[in-house]
Simulated assay, not measured.
Amino acid sequence: MTIFSTCIKVNEWMSKFHGKWGIAGGWAIDLFIGKETRIHLDIEIALFREDQHMLKKALPDWSFEKAVKGELITWEEEWLELPIHEIHGVHKQVGERLEVLLNETKDDEWIFRRESSISLPESSLFLDSNEGIPYLHPAVVLLYKAKNAREKDHADFNAAKDLLKVEDKEWLRKALVVHVPRHEWIHEL
């Protein structure tokens, strides 16, 4: 199996999607680091809420469900607003799965949906791996992982923290102070 074969496959699926997007979660951390650091049981992508219908056009062979209060419900053509931010896709023929996370924007800024005072320039949200695969900025991934962090989230933090640029560490530290003020990662940044 090729390194990042799962991410390469998703990049191929998304080739007809004309909006900005990127691999999210633990895979994004591995793409940032440049190697697979652990086993991943699923794969998520992030895209801007404004591009949600573009997703269906790009993946016509997929069915989609929206996560509503912990329950998956068929997503038809309706516009998804907050608090709905998670979509689950299944390829109708082969059963491949993809989780899609909708991200908020305002005035060219990405807005953290859990705390609107935390933002980042929209143009900085997605980076490209050496393989040409877009992924969510690792500081943003770690911010999402910080609340209710599991063992794998701590592993992702430890794998990525020393590779973050100084300004990205500082952005993450300040965001954590606002979002989870007593988080142990704050002192490690």
Rank of each mutant, 00 (worst) to 15 (best):
M1S: 15
C7M: 07
C7L: 02
K9M: 12
V10I: 15
W13A: 10
S15E: 08
F17R: 09
K20L: 11
G22T: 06
G26H: 00
L31S: 10
K35V: 01
T37Q: 07
I39D: 04
E50H: 07
L55D: 08
A58V: 05
L59Y: 12
P60S: 02
P60H: 02
W62D: 07
S63C: 11
K66Q: 15
A67F: 04
K69Y: 14
E71G: 00
W75H: 02
E76G: 03
E76F: 02
E78D: 14
H85Q: 13
E86D: 09
I87N: 08
K92T: 14
K92C: 12
Q93M: 15
R97M: 12
L101K: 03
T105Y: 01
E109S: 02
R114S: 04
R114F: 10
E115W: 03
P121V: 10
E122S: 14
S123P: 03
L125N: 08
L127T: 01
L127Q: 10
N130E: 15
G132K: 13
P134N: 05
P138D: 03
V140P: 06
V140G: 05
V141T: 14
V141H: 01
L143N: 00
K145V: 01
K152W: 06
L163P: 01
K165T: 05
K165E: 15
K174R: 14
A175V: 01
L176Q: 10
V177R: 15
V178L: 15
H183M: 13
E184N: 06
E188N: 11
